[in-house]
């Protein structure tokens, strides 16, 4: 295992949002802004703005990384852009009231379906289902997280059904 793969998450985090040059196996070189580093595989995700406005994403696999040189740090605008790159579209579009309405509507609906649900986190914004699944704003199927993929898929399809019924 290489030195790069042995780093811990806190060390990897120091690379996020920085411009880097990565030297990989067989002398391949990559430049770009670090979007993230997968803590399981040590894969480095780089983003680069293309001339046509598109974003090119390059990922160097952790086992192939030889050297990483840190360059510039991104400004706030760049950081914001990088942070939202892979995030679901709608997460920015809802106002506070609308979010509250969506939350209580989903909560009521889950309760009518006899699914235990509680509110958690700062200002009770996260819904917690049966203690094993979290639903964050804006409370769509993509906003569920759970380490139990069976429960995850069941609840996601339930929410899908709930949203479809509302339309």
């Amino acid at each position: 295992m290489s030195e790069w793969q042995r780093k811990n998450p806190l060390e990897w985090q120091t690379y996020v949002n920085k411009e880097v040059k990565v030297t990989a196996a067989e002398k391949h070189e990559y430049k770009g802004w670090v979007l993230t580093i997968d803590p399981v595989s040590a894969n480095i995700v780089l983003g680069k703005l293309m001339e046509d406005g598109k974003i090119s994403v390059s990922v160097i696999l952790g086992h192939a990384v030889k050297e990483v040189e840190i360059g510039n740090e991104g400004d706030d605008e760049m950081k914001e852009q990088l942070a939202h790159l892979f995030m679901p579209e709608e997460s920015k579009a809802y106002g506070q009231e609308e979010l509250e309405r969506r939350k209580s509507s989903l909560k009521t609906w889950l309760e009518t379906n006899h699914i235990p649900v509680t509110e958690q986190g700062e200002s009770q914004r996260t819904l917690c289902v049966a203690g094993v699944l979290m639903i964050d704003p804006p409370y769509g199927p993509e906003d569920c997280s759970s380490s139990n993929e069976i429960i995850l898929s069941r609840v996601q399809s339930l929410i899908q059904g709930h949203l479809a019924a509302q339309e």
Binding site: N8, L10, W12, Q13, L35, V59
Partner: peptide, 28 residues
């Protein structure tokens, strides 16, 4: 990989960092 310190607060911080990095990777 982990820093491997037994300190609870450090572990917590490390887990938080791991979560953020991992979520971004899964979304990619």
């Amino acid at each position: 990989s982990t820093a491997g310190s037994g300190n609870r607060a450090d572990l917590e911080r490390e887990q938080q960092g791991r979560v953020e990095l991992r979520e971004r990777y899964l979304r990619s």
